[in-house]
């Protein structure tokens, strides 16, 4: 170990550095020959062993009882680093900068409430379609739930228009889960699009996912794809989006904690940290001016 504090005093104008030595190389070469002997002949390994042992002994001699040093003459030169730039400019970022948006956000329960309301609203046009087109209250339920009923392959129209418990349970689970998840998603994303929440959440988003479904449903569930009436489908999706978006937007918003320092967010009492972050995070410096070269 040759940390500089432990080095012997060197005369003025000299510095003591670890002396060059070939013993590590001898040890490495010995190990090489040991390995080479594994592939070729034991005699080479033996030679390698001799070299490795003498390398090790030589290495010990370098550091015991005293580490061997060599003296190197040293000139203490003054070095004053200078920048080629003339000025330091600052990038100012005010506290309202977009990095701090959203300032407020709906709570988690607001998203859930929106999902529940939207899910209920969606049932109305879907059921209306079943009643008008097929005089059946269960048509839409069976279409959605039929996907999860294993023994129901290629059902007849009579089967689809009549009540079936397993289809109802499946449909309820799918519908409830999707409604709640999309509601949560609305709660999380609507504050990022603060201008027209109803337009974006109620119209644009449902059109977007209906388009994706329209393009892919023939691959995912061809049977459902055949039976769907896309105009009514879009209407029920928009009903969901409008109601869910409206409910979420109506709920009281809470302030986000992004502007608080990490320590405050996790509840640590560290008074010193709060002022510092504003200097470090918001104030970046850069050099400007002509290059001197």
């Amino acid at each position: 170990m040759s940390s500089h504090e432990e080095r012997p005093e060197a005369p003025d104008g000299f510095v003591a550095l670890p002396a060059p030595t070939a013993w590590p190389l001898v040890l490495a070469f010995g190990l090489l020959l040991i390995f080479l002997g594994v592939v070729t002949s034991a005699a080479i390994s033996l030679l390698g062993l001799v070299l490795a042992v003498s390398g090790g002994i030589g290495w010990f001699g370098e550091v015991l009882p005293q580490e061997r040093h060599e003296l190197i003459s040293m000139e203490a030169h003054e070095f004053a680093p200078k920048s080629t730039y003339r000025a330091v400019s600052r990038i100012h970022i005010d506290a309202q900068h977009r990095a701090h948006l959203p300032v407020t956000t709906p709570s988690v329960t607001a998203g859930l409430k929106g999902g529940v309301a939207g899910g209920i609203a969606m049932i109305v046009p879907a059921t209306l379609y079943g009643l008008i087109a097929f005089h059946s209250f269960w048509y839409a339920v069976n279409l959605l739930g039929g996907a999860g009923v294993a023994d129901w392959t290629n059902p007849t129209m009579a089967q689809i228009t009549h009540f079936r418990l397993s289809a109802l349970v499946t449909a309820a689970v799918i519908h409830a889960a999707l409604s709640l998840l999309v509601g949560l998603l609305y709660g999380a994303t609507l504050p990022m699009l603060p201008r027209h929440p109803i337009l974006l959440g109620g119209l644009f988003a449902p059109l977007l996912w209906t388009g994706v479904l329209h393009a892919s449903l023939s691959l995912i569930n061809p049977f459902l794809d055949q039976k769907i009436h896309w105009v009514w489908f879009v209407v029920s999706q928009i009903a969901f989006g409008m109601v869910a978006g409206w409910v979420v937007a109506k709920q009281a918003h809470i302030r986000t904690q992004q502007y608080l320092p990490f320590a405050a967010r996790v509840g640590l009492e560290t008074p010193g940290l709060i002022a510092e972050r504003h200097q470090e995070g918001l104030d970046q410096r850069t050099e400007s001016g002509e290059e001197g070269r």
């Binding site: 170990m1 040759s2 504090e5 432990e6 080095r7 012997p8 005093e9 550091v63 015991l64 009882p65 005293q66 580490e67 061997r68």
Partner: peptide, 10 residues
């Protein structure tokens, strides 16, 4: 390993 409190004997 070298100790500065020991005299440098080499």
């Amino acid at each position: 390993m070298a100790d500065s409190t020991l005299p440098v004997d080499r």
